[in-house]
Every structure is written in C-alpha cells, then in structure tokens.
Amino acid sequence: MCGPSSRRSSRTPGGCCGPTPRRAPTERFADIAGFEGENDPDGAGPDSNPNAVVASRKGAAVVDAGGNSLLSVTRSGDVALIATFPTREEPAPDIPGGPPAGTPIPSQSVPTSVAVAKGGAFLVGELRGFPFPVGGADLYRVAGGEPTVVAEGFTNVIDVEVGPHGTWYVLELASDGLLAAGESGLPMGRLLRVTPDGGDPVVVADDLPAPGGVAIRKGRAYVTVNSVLPGEGQVLAVPLT
C-alpha cells in the first residue's frame, strides 16, 4: 500500500507510487451550466450539477443532477438535450418546521449516473430528491430521447456500470435512505447486480460507507468509499464471482 510513510521518491526506479503525474493544462470544453441556465429543460428553474459523463459515439453524454437531464456533448463542445427525468410526489416525513407528515411533496429525479448499455442505449440511475424515498429510485434506459424505466425499487443510486455480458451494476449511496445514518454517521450503501432480462437484484457488497462510484474491470468491481471524508477515501476491490 502506498502512503506517506511508504512513498519513495518518484525519481527512484521501482518506487511504489511511480512518477509524480504532471498536471495537464485544462480549459472549459462545454458549458453545461450555461445550457441549463438558458434552457431549463425540466422547467423547475435553473439548477446545474453535472455529476457523471460517459463517452459516446458522437462525443459524450452528461447527466446533470441539478437539471434532471441527460445531455449530449459533441466533440466541438456543443451541448444538446437528450432527455429529462420526471418529478414525482412523495409523502412528507415528520420533521420540525416541515409540512404535516404524509403531505404530498415534489421529489425530483436527480439523475446521478450514466453508462452505455448493450446496443448503444444509455443507462441512467437516479438519486431522488428530498425526502430521498427508500425504494423510490429507478433505472432508466434512454434511446431516441425517451427514458423508459427498466428496473425499480432502488434507493439513492449514485452510480451505474455495465459489466460483462451486459449485466448492470447499481451502486446505492444510502441503502436505508439519506435520512438515515449508520453508526459512523455516514450513509451506508451497497452494490447490486441486475440482469437486463429481469429478476431480483443480487447484493454483491453491502455496508459500504458513503460509496461514490464503481468501475468494472477483469472480474472485479472497484468501489470508492468514504467519498465525503477529506483524506480518508479508499478504493475497494470486490470480486464478482
């Protein structure tokens, strides 16, 4: 494990951390917030929080969690709308200063993640806004600009990934909902495996503290945890067999 106590000079051959990466110059390629401000596709008022991006055949696709939208970005940086995701009503929880418990209140979609599914369609997962309903998050397939629910019953999805044979992997940020917290005070999430042809999700890993993202490589899922704790983030390798 490479850390401050074991780090060798980047000039030393065989150093455990390898060469110190150089910071490449950056420039703004596409103005996602600008597009949201000018167009407000979901009609809920301008609010932009680009949360995930995936390469596509024509450039890239971006989910804007604040704008409840999936956007395309061309290689020249032009932004266009692919789809928006619906707001639904949920019963208000019993909290001080809030409306009476059970009052229907709007809960936005808050799409947080996007991957390219088999056949080229986009797979989008949603967090759901306050009151962050347990079991209220859906998984969408987006083709031709129309989002279709392909799996449901998730809680606060933070990432999705497509694995071998087209299998879907869904990462929940807080499997008991964001209004609950584990003993550590962190939301506790889990990684689920979903087959596109139906069937109940299978838990691959649970009790994940504040997971932030997942990548699938060579029979393993690599999951980031402690994602909200500065200096304490980790990557866990989870076997998929």
Rank of each mutant, 00 (worst) to 15 (best):
K118V: 09
G120Q: 06
A121C: 13
A121I: 01
F122Y: 15
F122M: 15
F122E: 02
V124G: 04
R128Y: 05
R128I: 02
R128H: 03
G129Y: 09
G129P: 07
G129E: 11
G129H: 05
F132L: 04
V134D: 05
G136Y: 11
G136K: 10
D138I: 03
D138T: 10
D138L: 08
L139V: 13
R141G: 05
A143Q: 13
G144Q: 06
G144W: 05
G144R: 06
E146F: 06
E146R: 15
T148D: 11
V150M: 09
V150F: 10
A151G: 05
A151N: 06
A151V: 00
E152H: 12
E152C: 00
G153V: 11
G153C: 08
T155N: 04
T155I: 09
I158M: 12
I158G: 00
D159I: 11
V160H: 07
E161H: 10
E161G: 09
V162R: 08
H165D: 15
G166Y: 09
G166Q: 10
T167M: 03
Y169S: 01
Y169I: 01
V170H: 06
L171C: 07
L173N: 06
S175P: 02
D176N: 14
L178P: 07
L179D: 04
L179T: 08
L179M: 15
L179G: 02
A180G: 00
G182L: 13
G182K: 13
G182Y: 08
S184I: 10
S184H: 09
G185K: 10
G185Y: 14
G185L: 12
P187H: 04
R190A: 06
R190M: 02
L191F: 07
L192Q: 00
R193N: 03
R193V: 00
T195H: 11
T195A: 15
P196T: 04
P196G: 10
D197Q: 11
G198A: 08
G198V: 02
G199W: 00
G199T: 01
D200K: 13
P201D: 08
V202I: 14
V202G: 01
V202S: 09
V204R: 05
V204E: 02
V204A: 04
A205S: 14
A205V: 09
A205N: 10
D207K: 14
L208C: 14
P209R: 10
